[in-house]
Design a protein around this nucleic acid. Structure first.
Length: 426
DNA sequence: TCTGGGGTCCTAGGACCC
DNA sequence: TCTGGGGTCCTAGGACCC
């Protein structure tokens, strides 16, 4: 029988901040999304105050003040680096792991004897905490969905000290009974509403529900959830991440922008970033979508438009992608619309391979790829956007911040990725 | 006044073809 | 006026994940 473990970092972004600022222990702490818009990570103390996931900051400002909540902007460089450290530690302890997200990894424990599993898991918790400072919880079960269920219980019950194994049938059923239906992997808000309306409130109710009814509303994913919850594994461990299907870059502005030059700079910088991502994965895009929208919360005059741009030959060349994006934007731009968000999405991705010269191709592909390589190397060594395209805006002057640039007004130092921001011990 | 970003998969419906 | 069936491809929308 397969056996999966899920290693889940507790309140990951908050825990990263705490590693470098221990005075945050025991205090309510939250980390915000881009533009300091929403709470995307909360310490247990912050959760206890009733701060929900994804809540806009402007709705909880009084609460934050009243309880002296520590507030941080997202420091993605720090979190990515801490995530890498956790993954490295796990890789040293088990042969097969799947990095599922920035703060979660699945382990395949099928090759371990059942009696050895608890000690292994407790050792993982101890070792990750010692090596990285990040507290983790570990759940074990015969399917990924059940490992998730177990992790949920490991976090909820302090007496478990972060570890819960529900492989045993008795614990399996108790765990299902103790898991609200909306906490199940694959059940979001819509399905929660649908299920609760039919009296299905727990995972146990769900496995006992009518399969046809679930299938007709939730499709094959629904029946997979039923199987997975019953102990029939539908999702294998994916040690090698499958190739990406698309690569996107988009940003919301802190306010509406209608200035065409500003919008061009923003879009150009997203195109540049998308091209970098393609090259990092050794991919080229055949088409790209460019889209723009006004404030989605102002439904009365909401504007959204999108256009598709096809490249003559799949490409990862920055100037070519920037040029295409700006040309495409002309089709969707409308005067006097306060744009709140712009984005670009690369599709029809193919592996880079030896150049295939197109007759009348305007780009010298050998030369451009050498230039891109050189640019990527400089930016990797000296920091992102050390060299960049003029179309993405020249101003780096912080006293004149571009309207479209993302706001991070509560950011902690990049302790682990910038020499000039190392932690000082005094 | 103020509300993130980057993904995946599935399904239904339309166009088109034989 | 009567008016099949099946396959493919594409897109938009829905739902979910972290």
């Amino acid at each position: 029988m397969p056996r999966f473990a899920l290693v889940d970092c507790n309140n990951f972004y908050v825990s990263c901040e705490r590693v470098f600022n221990p005075s945050l222990e025991g205090r309510p702490v939250i980390v915000l999304s881009n533009n300091d818009g929403c709470a995307v990570a909360r310490s247990n103390e912050a959760k206890a105050l009733g701060i929900g996931m994804g809540v806009p900051v402007f709705k909880i400002e009084a609460l934050l003040k009243k309880h002296d909540v520590a507030v941080y902007s997202s420091n993605y460089a720090l979190y990515a680096d801490m995530s890498r450290r956790v993954t490295i530690t796990l890789g040293q302890m088990v042969p097969d792991l799947e990095v599922y997200s920035i703060d979660e990894s699945f382990l395949d424990l099928s090759t371990f004897r059942a009696v050895d599993v608890p000690e292994l898991c407790r050792n993982i918790i101890k070792t990750v905490t010692r090596n990285t400072g990040i507290p983790v919880s570990v759940g074990v079960g015969p399917t990924k969905t059940l490992a998730k269920v177990a992790t949920g219980l490991a976090k909820k019950c302090p007496t478990l000290h972060g570890f819960c194994d529900i492989t045993d049938p008795v614990w399996h059923e108790r765990a299902l009974a103790a898991t609200p239906v909306d906490k199940i992997w694959g059940v979001g808000r819509r399905y929660e509403k649908f299920l609760k309306a039919r009296g299905i409130n727990t995972a146990l109710d769900l496995v006992r529900a009518d399969r046809g009814m679930i299938q007709s509303r939730m499709g094959v994913n629904g029946t997979r959830i039923l199987d997975e919850l019953s102990g029939i594994s539908c999702y294998p461990l994916e040690a090698n991440p499958p190739a990406k299907k698309g690569i996107g870059v988009s940003r919301t502005f802190s306010r509406g922008i209608d200035d065409r030059q500003d919008l061009h700079e923003a879009l150009s910088s997203y195109a540049e970033r998308a091209a970098e991502k393609l090259r990092k994965d050794g991919l080229r895009a055949g088409v790209m979508d460019v889209y723009a929208m006004s404030n989605r919360f102002h439904k009365a005059d909401f504007y959204y438009n999108k256009t598709t741009f096809r490249f003559p030959v799949p490409t990862s060349d920055s100037p070519e992608i920037i040029k295409g994006a700006l040309a495409a934007f002309a089709e969707i731009y409308k005067e006097d619309i306060p744009f709140k968000k712009l984005g670009i999405h690369m599709r029809e991705l193919t592996q880079e391979k030896p150049e295939q010269q197109l007759l009348f191709d305007k780009v010298d592909r050998g030369q451009s790829s050498a230039l891109m390589k050189a640019m990527d190397a400089v930016n990797a060594n000296m920091g992102r956007r050390t060299v960049s395209y003029a179309s993405s805006g020249l101003s780096t002057d912080l006293s004149d911040p571009k309207a479209w640039r993302t706001q991070f007004n509560h950011k902690s130092p990049s302790y682990t990725t910038r020499w000039d921001q190392l932690l000082r011990v005094t």
